[in-house]
Design a protein around this nucleic acid. Structure first.
Length: 591
DNA sequence: GCCGTTTTCGGCCCGACTGTTTTCAGTCG
């Protein structure tokens, strides 16, 4: 078993033990064991299993070491299997209902035999839950609504959806007189491809009008919590939005804490400790001396230790000997080390982008004409726009055959010559990669184009090796400029096809082909997790909106977010080049 | 289940909020 699988088993054990009412510190030990494994390399784990030195890792003791070893060697763990068999299968599902934790679930199971969502729902409808000690009408109603809305509440949301839902809230908060500073935090700020909920942080000395505004904005369906220092609402979309209010001097620390990620925060706290400091959402304090706990220090109130001051996050990082780490990079993937060595990349910005490739028109499955798309690109200030309608095999998308493509080439030529728009238009195609790796157009046809995007749109289920070879064959074709959506994934809907990313990246570099960063918010493909390594090897990308209507040209901004998350600099993104350079680069590709 | 320059036993992160309680347990992040 690899580390991810082993960690998953440990986490599962923790959950099952909790449901059985085990000592919470025992369950925490399994959880932290899982986290520790995630933070180690496969190599290190294998080495420690082999040498029997797992116990040297702080947080892993005799019991965990034995279990990890068994899982690593055999892929099974009898302890886990017996445990699983002893807990009703439906019980774990109950944890997904808001307001239900292990204690209440146990009570419901013990007293009502409710060990599945179905049975719990029936018990609620019969009024049995409200009658239980420790429960009441409100709890019963909350459980029922939690069950009814389970799907909507549990769902993650595309980054752009979350961003659009959050923008008016952020603007509204910013406009309040009592608000000194406000930011959204969490995965939205880190620009993760999907977002679980919205987190807003406000600096204020006068929280109550802020809370009042927050819970009474439009689109709030339900207020789930409301206090002096925090509030939570459920929006009509099913998204949950949380508000935290802190005094101004604490803002930066809470902002950093709530932005995360967890892994990043763990590393930062560790680093603080190494320097005799203690970092938390409350501040950056001198670490407590051996005789006083932080709790006692807290109780001492104003006489307790004072946090170091930080006006901005840059101050916070500076206190720890680090340069500022942009939120997008805070994933615990080497950014702290890089910040220490002053080796963080200068990330590409929206302002760097000069043009957009891979866009569709009404010729295939787009909703706007060539002229409308060009006008929209001009309005965005783009120096160039690349059209790439589908090729003939994509008949579901009204793909163009040779005759229609030649027509479009002529049309684009006329448009450029007319100088009607400041934006230059490049003729291209999104050419299907056929199941055997051949392309959907002849060499002669492809040679007439300014650029060629190649994409897989069929036979998604091919074996990993077949699919990998298929794509590499296409990349090796002399007329190909860039590879479209590497895996074809649709976030929250469909897994991508199975490919060996490293080999495709190497083939692209060897053939001078770029891999697009498809900026459609439902794709963001190739995944940001691959970009750092790929770009360090020399891969170039093009941030492509894959727009099917004028408004979607704007997707390039979402793509810039993903590119930043992938540590990409301006130099590594082709579409930051001015038109003249871009023309030169494309011409050189065609020789 | 893990840990220890104060401990091999007795701690383990904690603050805010809700709901059901009448002083607090459970959940959440």
């Amino acid at each position: 078993m690899n580390k991810t699988e082993i960690a998953a088993v440990l986490t599962d054990i923790a959950t099952l033990l909790e449901l059985k009412g085990e000592n919470p510190f025992k369950t925490r030990a399994y959880q932290s064991g899982a986290r520790l494994l995630e933070g180690m390399t496969e190599d290190e784990i294998a080495r420690r299993v082999e040498a029997g030195t797992l116990e040297e890792v702080k947080g892993i003791g005799e019991a965990l070491a034995q279990k990890i070893t068994e899982l690593h060697r055999t892929g099974r763990l009898e302890f886990h299997e017996k445990l699983k068999a002893s807990v009703p299968a439906g019980l774990v599902d109950l944890l997904s209902i808001p307001g239900l934790g292990t204690k209440k679930i146990r009570a419901l199971q013990d007293k009502l035999g409710a060990d599945s969502i179905e049975k719990l729902k029936a018990a609620c409808e019969a009024g049995q839950v409200a009658a239980l000690e420790g429960f009441g009408d409100k709890s019963q109603e909350k459980i029922l609504s939690g069950i009814r809305n389970r799907e909507a509440y549990g769902r993650r949301h595309l980054w752009l959806e979350a961003q659009e839902a959050g923008a008016p809230i952020l603007a509204g908060l910013r406009a309040l007189a009592a608000v000194q500073q406000v930011e959204s935090c969490g995965s939205l700020r880190r620009r993760m491809e999907t977002v679980g909920d919205l987190d807003f942080l406000v600096a204020t000395t006068e929280p109550s009008p802020v809370v009042e505004w927050f819970v009474s904005q439009p689109h709030v369906k339900e207020v789930t919590a409301r206090g002096d220092l925090k509030a939570s609402v459920r929006l009509e979309s099913g998204l949950q939005a949380d508000l935290r209010l802190v005094p101004p001097e604490q803002f930066v620390f809470t902002l950093h804490h709530l932005t995360g990620s967890k892994d990043h925060n763990v590393q930062m706290r560790q680093r603080a400790l190494e320097r005799g400091l203690s970092l938390s959402e409350w501040g950056l304090f001198p670490a407590e001396d051996k005789h006083g706990s932080t709790a006692e220090a807290k109780k001492a109130g104003a006489t307790g230790p004072k946090s170091l001051a930080a006006k901005t996050e840059a101050d916070l990082f500076r206190h720890l000997g680090l340069e500022f780490i942009p939120p997008e990079l805070r994933e615990g993937r080497g950014e702290v080390e890089a910040a220490e060595q002053r080796k963080l990349p200068e990330l590409v910005t929206e302002a760097d982008i000069r043009g957009v490739f891979h866009n569709h028109t009404t010729a295939s499955d787009g909703h706007n004409t060539l002229e409308e798309m060009t006008a929209a690109a001009e309005a965005l200030g783009m120096e160039y726009l690349g059209i790439a309608d589908h090729s003939k095999s994509s008949f579901q998308a009204r793909g163009l055959d040779e005759a229609r493509l030649e027509q479009q080439i002529a049309e684009i030529k006329r448009l450029n010559e007319s100088k009607k728009f400041k934006t230059w238009v490049f003729s291209g195609t999104e050419c299907d990669i056929l199941p055997d790796g051949r392309l959907d157009f002849s060499d002669a046809m492809l040679a007439q184009l300014d650029y060629v995007v190649v994409s897989v749109h069929s036979s998604f289920r091919q074996e990993r090796e077949v699919m990998t070879q298929r794509i590499i064959k296409a990349i090796e074709h002399p007329h190909v400029t860039m590879l479209g959506h590497l895996t074809g994934r649709l976030l929250l809907e469909r897994e991508g096809y199975d490919v060996e990313v490293d080999r495709i990246v190497d083939a692209a570099i060897a053939n001078g082909v770029a891999i697009e960063l498809n900026a459609s918010p439902m794709r963001l493909d190739m995944d940001w997790r691959h970009w750092r390594k790929a770009a360090e090897k020399g891969l170039l990308t093009s941030i492509n909106p894959d727009a099917h209507r004028t408004a979607q040209l704007d997707y390039y901004k979402t793509g810039v977010g993903a590119a930043r998350k992938g540590w990409l600099t301006k130099e590594q993104v082709l579409t930051t080049r001015p038109l003249a350079d871009m023309k030169k680069w494309l011409a050189a590709r065609r020789k």
